Simulated assay, not measured.
Amino acid sequence: MYLEQVKKFTSNPILYFVLPVAFLLLMIVNYVFSMGVDSNAVIDQLIQQVGVNGAFVLMIAPLSIGLFLVWFWVKVIQRQSITSLTTSRKKVDFKRIFFSFFLWASITIVMTYIAYAIEPENFVVNFKPKKFLLFLGLAIILIPLQTSFEEYLFRGNLMQGLALVTKSRLLSFLLPAILFGLMHMANPEVVKIGPIIMMYYIGTGLFLGILTIMDEGLELALGFHAANNLIGALLVTADWTAFQTHSILKDVSEPSGSFEIILPIFVIFPILLFIFSKIYKWKNWKQKLTGTIDLN
């Protein structure tokens, strides 16, 4: 069992919270200093200085490198195996990662095509072959590292630490999801769309938490998160998003927010959970999501 296996290790429980708390404090400081600052103007200035690809690397590289910090901390300081941080299985199931990745990548591509076909006036073609290929190379390397960092930090280290301290599946599931959502408060999308978008970020955290707990490992969450950020960055960019990229399309419409939030949270994510549950034969939902964790 993914959460129960923390009892195999004798690390001080405090060690599980050092990196998550430090990261969240950095996010809070960033949010405080960004209040009253036009984040889009800051991003535009950075792009003028180092270019679109350069700005992308500078923004994402710290998070990408953070994955190796998490692995080092868990392996050397906590003396816990990376496999046990990833899954309850004897070895990491890469088939699960790739299936989740390609399923969500396919859905994202189809939804983007439909949106473009229905309202082509909302998009302009942004495709520049040389710049796109360079960005593609950077994105394939950096984005999966960035998304994996967030998964290992929130659905891995923090979730297992909470399981060890609280012995509550519900708290271990809910708190990382809420903190994952709050981590995005400084994103320019929040300014553009409004606080309602926090429902999407927290809802996505809840969805990823359900994947992790019900499937007894991070594999499905790792694949989904990588596909969500990578394919999204390659397909569409907008002037008001955190990542300005050499994507294929550029969204020039004014976001309403409500539809983009309601569709994935209340329609698509439940459908995905149903698909995964049938494929991987998930059972005992109530016990796994809200029950007590036996660490004896």
Score class of each variant (00 low, 15 high):
E4G: 03
V6R: 06
K8Y: 10
T10G: 08
T10I: 06
T10Y: 13
N12D: 14
P13D: 03
I14H: 08
L19W: 03
L24K: 09
I28D: 10
D38F: 07
N40Y: 14
V42P: 13
Q48E: 07
V50Y: 15
V50A: 05
V50P: 08
G51Q: 06
A55F: 15
M59Y: 02
I60Y: 11
A61W: 09
I65E: 04
G66H: 01
L69H: 06
I77Y: 01
Q78W: 10
Q78K: 08
R79M: 11
Q80Y: 03
L85F: 00
S88V: 00
R89M: 01
K91F: 06
F99C: 05
F101Q: 02
L103V: 08
T112P: 02
Y113R: 03
A117H: 12
E119T: 10
V124Y: 04
N126G: 12
N126I: 09
F127S: 09
K131N: 11
F132M: 05
L136K: 02
G137P: 02
L145A: 15
E151I: 00
F154P: 02
N157A: 04
L158T: 05
M159C: 01
Q160D: 03
S168M: 09
I178S: 11
H184A: 08
P188H: 06
V190E: 12
I193L: 14
P195A: 03
M198Y: 09
Y201I: 04
I202H: 04
G203H: 07
L208C: 14
L208N: 05
L211N: 04
I213G: 09
M214D: 12
G217P: 02
L218Q: 08
L218H: 03
L222Y: 05
G223W: 00
N229T: 05
L234N: 06
T241D: 15
L249W: 13
V252Y: 00
S253G: 15
S256E: 15
G257H: 07
G257K: 03
F266W: 07
V267Q: 10
F276G: 00
S277Y: 01
N284S: 09
K288S: 08
